[in-house]
Design a protein around this nucleic acid. Structure first.
Length: 195
DNA sequence: AACGGCAGCAACCGCCTTTCG
DNA sequence: ACGAAAGGCGGTTGCTGCCGT
């Protein structure tokens, strides 16, 4: 049988990607009422989302001070340093990178850095014994960094609300020639290895 | 020109911690 | 002092677009 909590008004909870309309509703509501108390906020705003989903969307994407786009070499270095120090404490790391979210840093680490580490291991005669720390994660040096344009696709699909008044946060992507960001990853990795 | 595989990102899930009644 | 609810966090998944064959 289908057990139904039956909240009388059983809200069909929406999941998946947020639509522009939902974003608008959420932003507008928060602009007028402030953030927090997410469950009731979701209900009051008329969003068929869970409080968690609203919170996540706001914190990671809609908040005016969220900074999206290319991770700078400085930021990368900081991420690596802090990760070496704290491991996967993403939110803790994020606190030291203004405008960056834990989710973004986590994704960045996994998609970019961790991969390089793996390859580097295979390259430097990895074996299983990292004489360094092997409690947390493993860091090593890098190798292939050619294909990684820092800018890549930056923002795709529907970019954050362009009507956002505080749009200072949203820097236009435009990789274009900005890829003088050919970050000397070798240097960064080297520094990392010195730890 | 079409297909398959890969990479990157947004969002979800479940667990743990904190706060409130 | 205890229990319930909400918030916060990290891991994981699914989708989309890009690149190579």
């Amino acid at each position: 049988m289908d057990k139904k909590p039956c909240k009388s008004q059983d809200v069909e909870v929406r999941k998946g990607p947020w639509t522009m309309e939902e974003d608008l509703i959420l932003m507008n509501y928060i602009a007028n009422h402030g953030e927090g108390v997410w469950n009731s906020l979701a209900r009051s705003a008329g969003l068929k989302r869970t409080g968690k989903s609203c919170r996540l969307r706001w914190l990671n994407y809609l908040r005016p001070d969220v900074r999206r786009g290319n991770i700078t070499p400085e930021e990368q270095l900081l991420i690596m340093e802090l990760h070496a120090k704290w491991g996967n404490r993403w939110s803790k790391i994020a606190k030291h990178l203004p405008g960056r979210t834990d989710n973004e840093i986590k994704n960045y680490w996994r998609t970019r850095i961790q991969k390089h580490i793996k390859q580097a291991e295979n390259f430097t005669g990895q074996t299983a014994d990292h004489q360094h720390h092997h409690h947390n994660n493993d860091q090593a040096s890098t190798s292939q960094l050619s294909s990684c344009g820092p800018a890549d696709h930056a923002v795709e699909s529907y970019s954050p609300p362009s009507f956002n008044p505080n749009m200072e946060a949203f820097q236009g992507p435009f990789p274009t020639e900005s890829n003088d960001n050919f970050w000397s990853m070798e240097d960064l990795w080297s520094m990392q290895l010195l730890n």
